[in-house]
């Protein structure tokens, strides 16, 4: 959820930068700064999407509290 929020915020920022850049009303200094920022945001968003470290867990409720337990991915998860 947190990851999603960061991604969403970054993407919004990125879209705003792209708009500002295409608006052509920035000074060269501003434009270059925005451009660099935009490229970094695009890079970080892409990285988030291309990350390969997913977690697979089971949700277990015990005594009214939730815990996550690692799920054995070979399809033989216990429970």
């Amino acid at each position: 959820m947190k990851e999603k929020q960061v991604f969403e915020d970054d993407l919004k920022k990125l879209q705003k930068i792209v708009e500002e850049l295409s608006g052509g009303k920035l000074t060269l200094g501003e434009a270059l700064k925005k451009y660099e920022e935009g490229i970094n945001l695009a890079e970080s968003c892409s990285q988030t999407l291309q990350e390969a470290e997913r977690k697979v867990e089971s949700l277990i409720k015990k005594d009214g509290r939730y815990t996550l337990k690692e799920f054995a991915e070979d399809g033989e998860g216990k429970d």
Partner: peptide, 8 residues
Amino acid sequence: PCVDVVIR
């Protein structure tokens, strides 16, 4: 593979 999975 960037997507986490929670199995209920």
